[in-house]
Simulated scan of single mutants.
Amino acid sequence: MNKSNQRTNDTKDVLIELVAIAFLATGGIFVKFSSLPPINTGFYRVLLAFPFLFPLAYKYLYQLTKKDITILCLAGIFLAGDIALWNLSFSYTSVANANLLTNLTPFTVIPISYFLFKEKISPSFLVGAGITVIGVFILLGGKNNPSPSNYFGDLLAFCASIFYAGFLLITYRLRDRYQSSVIMFVSGFGSLLALGATAAVIEGLQAPKEWMDLFPLLGLAICLQVIGHNLLAHCQGKINVNLSTIVCLCQPVIASIYAFLIFSENLSLKEIAGIIIVMMGVYSVKSQYQKKTKKLAKEPS
């Protein structure tokens, strides 16, 4: 095993990913406030992020090979699929359901990473992952009453999770060689092309009409594209992909906390129980990976 590329799964890196998730959890708020259609909103989210990402990435762009540029643009197309479907899902289902279903990436990432990256799935990992998923469903079950009108939006959000899993899997190994800002900057060109073409066909490309229309778009660009996804890409070089996707399941938990703090929505006992169970599951998975990493570190080269 190449120790230089070994992911240590340190507590500080898990906490950094939680910060990233906290920024990503604001996405539903900004999408709801946007005056533009969902796919156009996603297009401007990526476009407005470029001026912020370029100063972080330009020093390292010379390191890119043509092959890696192509791969990153492909990853950007997958991220565009996630953005478009996630934004669309808010028109049909609740913010909570969209946050849950779009973060079910472990069900795609874990099996594929087993074959691609030879990352073994231990019984203790499955137990921790199961606890986390149960906690998320308990949390959301305390707030939402599913109806037939939600099913289409739920399907869109779940399909978004598959596209996002594709983005994570494509960029996972590239994070060994490139800064997270480089990954987000270059993949943004693939996202911009895909979102622009899709918006032109489905909604027609539109522009913000007033200055106030820019604020939700800037919020999406800064909080999600520049900070959230950039920090998440940074953590890909520090945390195993399976653990990373499990930590992402905290996003619905954080979204519920936002609702409590910002909109004074009371948390039921069922929701509080769900939050506690999710944290227990994430801690269980994280502990299992850290024990594995320490064991590998003690082995002779």
Rank of each mutant, 00 (worst) to 15 (best):
S4V: 11
R7N: 03
D10E: 13
K12E: 14
V14E: 00
V14C: 01
L15Q: 07
L15H: 05
A25P: 12
I29C: 11
I29E: 15
V31Q: 13
P37D: 08
N40G: 11
Y44Q: 04
V46Q: 02
L48I: 03
L48S: 02
L48A: 03
A49Y: 06
L53V: 05
Y58K: 08
K59I: 05
K59H: 07
Q63K: 14
K67N: 05
I71H: 11
L74E: 13
A75F: 14
F78Q: 10
W86I: 14
L88A: 04
L88Y: 05
S89F: 03
V95N: 10
A96V: 12
A96C: 08
T105R: 00
F107P: 04
F107D: 02
V109H: 07
V109S: 11
S113A: 15
Y114S: 03
F115K: 02
K120R: 09
I121Y: 00
S124F: 02
A129K: 02
I134Q: 01
G135R: 02
V136L: 05
I138P: 07
L140M: 14
G141R: 00
G141A: 04
K143P: 09
N145L: 11
P146T: 02
S147K: 02
S147P: 03
P148C: 03
Y151Q: 01
F158A: 02
A160V: 13
F167D: 12
F167S: 03
L169I: 07
Y172C: 06
L174S: 01
L174K: 00
R177F: 15
Q179G: 06
S181N: 00
S181D: 01
V182L: 06
V182G: 04
I183F: 04
M184T: 08
V186F: 07
L195R: 04
A197H: 04
T198P: 07
I202G: 11
E203M: 04
L205R: 06
Q206D: 11
W211F: 15
W211K: 02
M212Q: 07
D213V: 11
P216N: 03
P216L: 01
L217N: 05
A221P: 10
C223A: 13
L224R: 09
V226Q: 04
G228E: 07
G228F: 06
N230P: 07
N230R: 01
Q236K: 06
N242C: 03
N242Y: 00
I246C: 06
V253T: 15
V253P: 09
I254L: 12
I262N: 08
I272Q: 07
I275S: 15
I276Y: 14
V278N: 10
M279L: 15
Y283K: 11
S284R: 01
S284E: 02
S287K: 04
Q288E: 15
Q288V: 06
Q288L: 01
Y289C: 04
A297S: 14
K298I: 01
K298E: 15
K298N: 11
P300N: 13
S301T: 13
